[in-house]
Design a protein around this nucleic acid. Structure first.
Lengths: 222, 222
DNA sequence: CAGGATCCACTATTGGATCCCG
DNA sequence: CGGGATCCAATAGTGGATCCTG
């Protein structure tokens, strides 16, 4: 399986992403020697990982954006036939124990969202996975208003965790940044601080960008 | 059919509305000699008119709140078993021709929403109409934030009408104040200004309060 | 018709549950 | 597990259609 070298500049990364546009998932998978399951249920995440390979993302970066040297995070975005995103976008897991001690500026959320390369991919269920096409990429940074909303969403979550109210962390929270379960299944458990000095077990959660937020971004409504 | 005299003060109106709470629609209808259809489909609006009678609203006020002397508008609010409203709340019809010339301060929307007496009424489909109970009333005025949002919603509509874009007036518009059809049926037509000096025919529309807005109000989330 | 509203088929959104890879 | 995500049942929202009274 081939893996492209890291792009040396933002321009190079954007050139590569533009070159991807119009090709199908099947074509790109073939070019990189990646096998595609027939069933999309068995392929969750594969298109994202394929895009990483094709664009030269540093594989397995943990607390950093995908393109570490460029400070750019890569996100594939499943889009409907009309171009609007279908799903929310995973940002990062929530470290419940660290959250109250981490300012937004220093958070992984902010590190990843400061600059994002969105790569749309067709996700019409009527299209078989190999037939789906990559679309024109969008290199995005939040406006000051967007940043303020993201920060407010983050701080609301941090406050709840600080107060030990982790069970209030549901998908209802957040204007742009949403909180959702992030686990293989609902039986997974993590320790979280409780209201006193102890801890409680709760389901692991992640930060996601709401679909309507990425829809605004793609639509160029700034 | 009996009709209560107008209340002489806000306090008297609220006393009457509180006295209504707990009684059923059937009981109040009986007390006022009003017949109730068996079918709720044939009774649309009747509970609202019954509440007007019972509380002494000035019948047939047009461009004024129901209690003209008090400046208070009466709205019955159909609520689910858990107390949350089921439907949006009609405010007033949209006079398409006048809208662009009328500031929010002078609008019928603002005249009616400045002060509203909400009277909840059970609206669980499992309950027959006569068995549905009136709930505890809430005398409400918009906070400054709420007013600002209502005004922004209003002005967005006014702008679209001014530009002749009446076909953009759909239920999607508005954070708190929604635009919806307001007619006996979909064949009804009204004249509306077009982009030039002429007019086009379009369906009559009204301003409504979104269900989520009245839900916030009832929940006391201010 | 304007004011008082609700019905309901359809679509869109929600958010908890789940799946692959290394 | 953490990073890459999507699935899908249930709920909420939409808005056209409709109904009564004066």
């Amino acid at each position: 399986m081939s893996q492209a070298p890291p792009p040396r500049s933002e321009e190079e990364l954007v050139r590569r992403a533009r070159a991807l546009a119009g090709w199908t998932v099947g074509e790109i998978a073939g070019a990189h020697g990646v096998a595609l399951p027939a069933d999309t249920t068995r392929a969750k995440g594969l298109v994202g990982q394929l895009a990483e390979r094709a664009l030269g993302a540093s594989a397995g970066s943990l607390d950093e954006p995908d393109f570490v040297a460029l400070g750019i995070e890569l996100k594939t975005l499943p889009v409907r036939p009309d171009g609007r995103p279908k799903e929310s976008t995973f940002v990062c897991s929530i470290r419940l124990a660290d959250l109250p001690d981490t300012d937004f500026e220093d958070s992984l959320v902010w590190k990843k969202l400061r600059r994002v390369l969105f790569v749309p991919v067709e996700a019409d269920p009527a299209l078989a996975l190999p037939a789906r096409r990559f679309g024109a990429p969008l290199l995005w940074s939040p406006s000051s208003e967007e940043r303020a909303v993201l920060q407010a969403d983050y701080e609301r979550v941090a406050t709840l965790v600080l107060r030990g109210e982790v069970e209030q962390l549901t998908g209802h929270l957040g204007t742009y940044l949403q909180v959702r379960p992030k686990a293989a299944d609902s039986r997974a458990r993590r320790r979280a601080p409780d209201a006193d000095d102890g801890f409680i077990w709760t389901g692991p959660r992640g930060f996601y960008l709401r679909t309507r937020f990425t829809a605004r971004i793609l639509a160029g409504l700034r």
